[in-house]
Design a protein around this nucleic acid. Sequence first.
DNA 1: TCAATTGTATTTTATTAAAATATACTGTTT
DNA 2: AAACAGTATATTTTAATAAAATACAATTGA
Lengths: 300, 300
Amino acid sequence: MARTDDRFRSAYNTLLDICADMNAGEQLPAENALATQMEVSRTIVRAALQKLDSEKLVQWDGRRKTLIKVPEAKHRLATAQSVPSNEELEHQFLEWILRFDVPEGTTLNVAQLSRQFGVPAYSLQEFLAGLNRFGLVERGKKSGWILRGFTAEFAVELSDFRQVLEMNAVRQLLEQPADHEIWQQLKLLRKEHEDLKTVLASRYHDFSVLDEKFHTTINSVVKNRFVIEAQKIISLIFHYHYLWDKTDELERNAAAIEEHLGWIDAMLSLDVARSEAAALKHLRSSKETLLSSLKGHKLV
Amino acid sequence: MARTDDRFRSAYNTLLDICADMNAGEQLPAENALATQMEVSRTIVRAALQKLDSEKLVQWDGRRKTLIKVPEAKHRLATAQSVPSNEELEHQFLEWILRFDVPEGTTLNVAQLSRQFGVPAYSLQEFLAGLNRFGLVERGKKSGWILRGFTAEFAVELSDFRQVLEMNAVRQLLEQPADHEIWQQLKLLRKEHEDLKTVLASRYHDFSVLDEKFHTTINSVVKNRFVIEAQKIISLIFHYHYLWDKTDELERNAAAIEEHLGWIDAMLSLDVARSEAAALKHLRSSKETLLSSLKGHKLV
DNA sequence: TCAATTGTATTTTATTAAAATATACTGTTT
DNA sequence: AAACAGTATATTTTAATAAAATACAATTGA
């Protein structure tokens, strides 16, 4: 079998569901209507109807599609276990790189990785082609893909790029009207930071999530597909680095919370100069953390 | 045939060239040495040697590879016509979109496009997967790829993104030491602008190239792989739009040259505020041009 | 003896071929 | 004539496959 018939199987099951809402003797809708409703082509609808007919659940004759018997659970087709989505793949890939410290210059073995991640090889190809655009991987001369990033140099460039985008976000944020939802969100974030601060000694692991939420919120005012795409990669990488770098986690996070709070307060008081200074301060210490986490990894 | 033997063919020809530099009776280097030199695997080297042996050009016996006859042109294998590189594909794709005003939401037909561009379908897939990261295309629900960009909204977002990156470049540029090559380059660019200005009436088409060179130069001080990748796409799209939008080209280019000159002078005099103002002015009028060119296309 | 080299087996990649699916076109039916 | 089904064709997805790369074992010659 070249292409999987997964689309057919899930469409067939959906059609069973549609029949289950009907009574025996009723007529099914037109092929086109079913196709539109189920978001598949008429070809699949017809294939499913054919199977329903041969299963004696429906009597199909031209435009008469009479439901003979309301289908039961046993009639459902086993649908293939869903392959990881593109986002899950991204997740797995970065986790793999950071967890095992895959070094710069490693040739990525698509066949092996696709088995490891449980995705078809071509789907991994497609994924790598996307990372290629960010300079994270590059096509090898002989063949295959070569891992480019995750060196100190990479971290510096990533941090700098983040700084450019985030400073821009701060400037745009401060220009938002008073009734913009961002101000409420900032106040809420402020409270969440204060709350975490009081219980930090025991819950300092929770900061990673809050950090991501904080940066995502600030960047959310920038409605720009390029910035959004870039941010996705940036936050992903920062997030994973924080997850794996456990040195001085408590102190680091305590300091970061203070920096965040200072930054939030500066923005809430609409002070541009102070906001920019606070942002710069935090972004620079983030950069240091990312860099030192890389150094730490290298030595292990 | 699953995979083409193009690699073998060109390697065989290279090996003929190597033999041509030798005399009959001499020994060829070791397989590994040849493989390294020719940048292919030993498998190919051995296959080529086998063919040389059966062609009675080389007598191959274990590690003795004696050249019997210096090969001539007639021995060369016909190598497949080279498929367009990834960059040529990018070029062709954008040209196609802009020339024919392919509208937003068009489902891209990979099979047809691959024929049109003369590239294997899977290679086009890979290319589209890359564009996906920039939000230029997106995977269709049923199948295929859907063109997302090239609307007014897209142009605004692209211009804004460009502005963020280029304003950052200006700030970094002004911090460069006096002996940095950028200052000489700027002076040269200034002269080129002045030169074009005097003959603009007849040569105004040349501005497009100069414009790209100007922006590339300014951005060259930012050593950041993310910025560089982003700039690639940005300059590509601006460049192609200018190429196809012919309305008021002379006036537009004359104005742009003045803006460039003002910007260059501001930077050469190390005046940060004036540089930023000049940059903003030009970037904003570029944005207007891009927007109006889109509107123009839509109406035709 | 051992480093360099070749011989052989295995793995991986690039490309194709074919099944699954989508779409276009044509002929019925209501 | 509008809605629908039947049929034909085009396209996409994905397994299969030949080419190429790599890994490992055997051999050679210093």
